[in-house]
Amino acid sequence: MNLNKIFKNAFLVVIFGLVITACATKKSVKTTTETSTTTKAAETQKADPIEKLDALMQGDVYVGSDTVGELASGVPDRVFFATNETILTTASRETLRKQAAWLRQNSDVTVVVEGHADERGTREYNLALGERRANAAKDYLMTYGVSSDRIKVLSYGKERPVDSGSNPLSWSKNRRSVTVKAN
């Protein structure tokens, strides 16, 4: 278990490093393109998807904004998870605190928290995993003052992906819990 943690931390450090390098490259690319020829512009385009991937995933948690809707103005509707994980990231907790604040101000609103998994697991296990993720989000909302009777959970397992791709980025968008207004 401890070893696992060490690996995980090491992994995060490496990923962090990658993200920083990605940012750095982006900057240098920008400065060169200002004085660039057309061939150089083409090169930047080629490099783009890789940079994008680094910017969109931390570890394998999605951090981009594609597919993210709003529960209310300025309140994102979903949070994302690492493979097989139900742990809420710092960004997820921030999102859920925004949701909780809005729900406290709008006390007549009830919500359904829908938990989802990616397609890389067996159907039944994913149903359980989706339920676990939705409950992780529900518990956090409750910690921030939303009463449990206003929150229903519903697991879809791998049944309702938002992205139909078969690649790590698509899967990261699908590992999610979405807070949906129920009334």
Binding site: T86, E124, L127, A128, E131, R132, A134, N135, A136, D139, L154, S155
Partner: peptide, 24 residues
Amino acid sequence: MTFAPRFSPDGKKIIMSLAKDGNS
């Protein structure tokens, strides 16, 4: 949520999972 059902060999019981509060 109840899910993952299967019959017992004599057909008289159903075995399944119940997911509640994040635990199945």
